[in-house]
Design a protein around this nucleic acid. Structure first.
Lengths: 207, 207
DNA sequence: ATGACGTTTGACCTTCCGGTCAAATACACG
DNA sequence: CGTGTATTTGACCGGAAGGTCAAACGTCAT
C-alpha cells in the first residue's frame, strides 16, 4: 500500500520539460514506424535521453503510446464538435472540411499515428471509437439529417458524408509520400486540395 | 559459382501449395500488424508450418513481404489501367470508382498492407510510386484533362480527382473498424458507400 | 552547507526473434 | 523396391529489445 510518487505532487520544471520532449520524440517515432517498429532506445535517442532515464518518466513504451493516443483523440474530435447546428449549413460543413484539412497539414504525425492504430484494428482505442466518437458523430449526423430534411443541403446518408470528409482530408496526411510521388516536385498538395475539396463539397451539398 | 536450386527447375506441387499458403498467412499477419509487428513464428503458425520449414520456401521475412508487395502493386493498378480514353467520360470514371470500391471490399487485407507501407514512408516501393504509378496516373490525368477541356466533365485538377477516388474507396477498407464502430451494427458499409459515392461523383463530374 | 529528494546512468537480466544447421523423414520415379 | 531428391524438424545461435537496479550525481530549500 505504498504511495505512488507522482500521484499528488505537482510536476517539477524538469519533469514537465522532459515529459514533453519524450512525447514529441515518441510521436515522431510511432507515427513513422508504428508501435512495434519503434524501439525505446530510438525514442530515447530522439529525445536526447538515456533509456533508463526515459523510463524514469514513463513506466513503459506502452504507457507513452497510450498517453499519445489519449491526447490525440481529444484534439481529433474538436473540429467536429465545433460544427454549429445553428449556423448556415453549407458554411458550417465547408468550415469543418477546412479545419480538418488544416489539422492534416499542421499535425500529420498525429494523423498517421491515428491511422496506424485504426489499421491495426484499433486495439487500444476501440472503446473510445464505440463510445465518445460514435456518440459525437451520431449527434452531428442528426444535425446533418435535419438540414437535409429541411432542404438546406442535398439529401444523403449523413454518416457517409462525415466519412467522406475524414477520408479526403486525412488522405493528404496519411498518404503524403504517395501524393507527392505522384504529383512530382513543384506542388503544394494542401493548397491544391483546399480549393478542390471546397468545390467538391459545395457541389455535393447543393440541394 | 554454384547453381541456385530453384532457379530453373519448375515448382513442385508441394512448393506451389506451400508458397501460396505462406503468402496468404503472411498477408493476414502483415496487413494486421505491419512488417515489424509481425513475427516469422506468427506467419508459420498461421500457415501451419514450422518456422524452419517456412524459411525453406522463402529466404527471409523480408522476402515474403517484398513478394506480397510486388504481387499487390500490379493488381492495384489494374482498375485504373482499365479506364478507357475512348469511353463515355462519366461512365468511365464511375466505373473506376466502382471497381476500386469492389477491390476494397473484396481485398481489404491488400488495401491495408498497401496503406501500412505508405504510412511508413513507402521505403520498399518508393521507386514504383515514382515510376510506374506516377506514369500511369499522369497518363490517365491527361485523359481526364482532355475530357474537362472538351466540356464533357467539370473542370478540376485531374490528379486530385484521382486522389479523391483513392481516398474515398480505400477508406472503407483501411478504416473498416472505425466505420463499423461508428455506424453500429446492422449496416453494410460497402453497399451504402456504393450508392453514396456514385451520387457524389456524379455531382462532382457534371459539367 | 547540508540533507532530502529529484534525476541520471552503466551494467545487467530476460525474453523474443530472425535465421541456421545437421539430421531425419517423405516422395517420386526408374 | 531402392535411391536420389525434396521436405520437415528440433536444437541452437547471436543480436536486439523492453525493462530493472543500485549507485552516482544535481538541485534546492532551509
Amino acid at each position: 500500500m505504498q504511495d505512488r510518487q507522482a500521484a499528488e505532487r505537482p510536476l517539477t520544471r524538469i519533469q514537465r520539460k522532459n515529459r514533453e520532449t519524450i512525447l514529441d520524440a515518441a510521436l515522431d517515432a510511432f507515427s513513422s514506424y508504428g508501435f512495434r517498429g519503434t524501439t525505446v532506445d530510438q525514442i530515447a535517442e530522439l529525445a536526447g535521453l538515456s533509456k533508463p532515464n526515459l523510463l524514469y518518466y514513463f513506466p513503459s513504451k506502452e504507457a507513452i503510446h497510450a498517453e499519445l493516443l489519449t491526447l490525440l483523440l481529444d484534439a481529433w474530435l474538436d473540429p467536429l464538435r465545433a460544427l454549429d447546428p445553428e449556423g448556415e449549413p453549407v458554411a458550417e460543413i465547408l468550415g469543418y472540411v477546412r479545419r480538418k484539412l488544416e489539422l492534416s497539414r499542421d499535425y500529420p504525425r498525429e494523423s498517421r499515428l491515428f491511422a496506424n492504430e485504426i489499421l491495426q484494428g484499433a486495439p487500444r482505442i476501440m472503446a473510445a471509437l464505440e463510445g465518445e466518437l460514435k456518440a459525437l458523430v451520431d449527434e452531428k449526423a442528426a444535425v446533418l439529417a435535419n438540414w437535409a430534411a429541411a432542404g438546406r443541403i442535398a439529401d444523403m446518408p449523413p454518416h457517409h458524408l462525415i466519412f467522406s470528409i475524414w477520408a479526403l482530408t486525412q488522405h493528404y496526411a496519411d498518404f503524403d509520400v504517395q501524393v507527392r510521388a505522384v504529383l512530382g516536385p513543384g506542388h503544394d498538395p494542401y493548397a491544391e486540395a483546399q480549393g478542390f475539396l471546397e468545390t467538391l463539397f459545395a457541389k455535393l451539398l447543393a440541394p
